[in-house]
C-alpha cells in the first residue's frame, strides 16, 4: 500500500509538471503583461527595467525554469490589481469555495442516495418514474437560471433565505467558516443547493441503475434465500456495491464542482476563488490566474489520489495481493 501510494504521488507530480508546461505555453499566447502594467506615459528606460525585472529578457527555457522554481517555492508573483502575493490571495479565498463545494457534494449524497435507492427498488412505480424524470431536469437546467430562480422564490417572494454573501463566520484554524453559525448556514443553503443540483441528479441516476442491477443479481437472490430482512439486503448488500461507482464519480466531481463554482459564486456573491478568478480574467491579472489554475490542478490530482484509496477500501477485489 505504501509503495503504491508513493507511485501514485510520483504520477501526480508528473501530471502537475505537464500542466505547468501547458500553462506556461498558454501564457506565452496571451502576450506580454508589460502593456497592462506600465502606465501610458512610461519612458523607454522604465519599460526596459520592467522587462528585466519580470525576467522577460531571458530565453524561453530559462523563463520556464524560473516559473517552475517560483511554483515550487509557492511564489507565483504579485497580483497586479491587489498588490498582494497571488498564491496567498487565492489561498485566502480557498476556504469559502471549499466550504461551498464540499457542502454541495454532501447535499448531493444526502439527497441523491436515498432518491436513487427508492427509485431503484421499485423501478416501475410512479414514485420512481417521478424521481427519474425530475433528475433529467436537474441535469439539463442551467445553473445560473436555477440560481436566479431560487433567489426569486426563497429570498424575494418568501423571504426565508438570504441571497448573497457568507453571513456570519466563525474563525477556526485562522480561517472563517460559515457553516458553523446559523446565519452562515442559511447563507450557504441556496448557493450549495443550486451548485449541487447537477450532482444530485447524477448520484440519483447512478444509484438507481446500480440498485436495479444489484437487485436482480444472484447475490441478492441468495441473500433473500438466506432469509435476510429486505432492509439489511438494501442497506448492506446492495448499498455497498452501489457505493463503488458513486464514490468514484462524486470524488472526481469534487474537483469539477470547485472549478465550476465560478458561476454560482458570481450569482450569490459568494466571496470564493471563483469570484476572484472572474475579476482577475477581466483585469488580465496574470499571477492570480496562474495561481488559481495551478491550485485547481493540484486539487484535482490530490482528489484523484484520495478517490483511488477510497475505492480500494470499498472494493476488496482491487486491493493488491499480499496486503
Amino acid at each position: 500500500m505504501t509503495l503504491w501510494i508513493f507511485q501514485r504521488l510520483l504520477q501526480a507530480a508528473l501530471v502537475a509538471l505537464a500542466m505547468a508546461a501547458l500553462l506556461f505555453l498558454a501564457l506565452q499566447l496571451i502576450g506580454s503583461p508589460v502593456e497592462t502594467l506600465l502606465p501610458a506615459e512610461a519612458t523607454h528606460e522604465e519599460r526596459l527595467r520592467l522587462i528585466r525585472d519580470l525576467g522577460l529578457d531571458q530565453p524561453l527555457h530559462i523563463q520556464f525554469l524560473m516559473f517552475l522554481k517560483g511554483m515550487v517555492q509557492g511564489n507565483l508573483g504579485v497580483s497586479y490589481v491587489f498588490k498582494e502575493p497571488a498564491v496567498a490571495l487565492i489561498l485566502s479565498r480557498l476556504p469559502a469555495t471549499l466550504e461551498l463545494a464540499l457542502f454541495a457534494v454532501l447535499l448531493s449524497l444526502i439527497i441523491g442516495l436515498p432518491l436513487g435507492l427508492i427509485a431503484g427498488r421499485r423501478p416501475h412505480s410512479l414514485t420512481a418514474q417521478t424521481i427519474m424524470t425530475g433528475s433529467i431536469l436537474g441535469f439539463s437546467l442551467p445553473i445560473f437560471w436555477v440560481g436566479i430562480l431560487l433567489i426569486m422564490i426563497f429570498s424575494v417572494w418568501l423571504g426565508w433565505l438570504p441571497s448573497s454573501g457568507r453571513g456570519q463566520t466563525v474563525m477556526v484554524l485562522g480561517v472563517g467558516w460559515s457553516f458553523l453559525t446559523w446565519d452562515g448556514l442559511r447563507h450557504l443553503i441556496l448557493p450549495a443547493f443550486s451548485l449541487s443540483l447537477f450532482n444530485i441528479s447524477m448520484v440519483t441516476r447512478l444509484t438507481e441503475s446500480g440498485v436495479r442491477e444489484a437487485m436482480s443479481s444472484e447475490y441478492v437472490k441468495f441473500a433473500r434465500a438466506k432469509g435476510l430482512a429486505p432492509r439489511r439486503i438494501l442497506t448492506v448488500h446492495v448499498l455497498k456495491n452501489v457505493m463503488i461507482p458513486v464514490v468514484t464519480v462524486v470524488g472526481l466531481d469534487i474537483g469539477t464542482t470547485i472549478a465550476f463554482s465560478v458561476v454560482t459564486e458570481t450569482i450569490f456573491a459568494w466571496p470564493g476563488m471563483g469570484k476572484i478568478i472572474i475579476d482577475s480574467i477581466a483585469a488580465l491579472d496574470r499571477p492570480v490566474i496562474v495561481a488559481y489554475l495551478m491550485l485547481v490542478v493540484l486539487m484535482f490530482v490530490l482528489i484523484n489520489l484520495v478517490v483511488d484509496i477510497l475505492y480500494r477500501l470499498l472494493d476488496p477485489r482491487i486491493r493488491l495481493q499480499g496486503e
Binding site: 434465500a225 438466506k226 435476510l228 448488500h237 455497498k240 456495491n241 477485489r317
Partner: peptide, 21 residues
C-alpha cells in the same frame, strides 16, 4: 423459514456470494 428450515444453493458460486462483503 428461508435460510433456516429451507435453504438453497445456487448454480454459480462466483455470483452468489456478495463480492464486497
Amino acid at each position: 423459514l428461508r435460510g433456516n428450515r429451507i435453504a438453497m444453493i445456487f448454480q454459480d458460486p462466483a455470483m452468489t456470494l456478495n463480492p464486497v462483503l
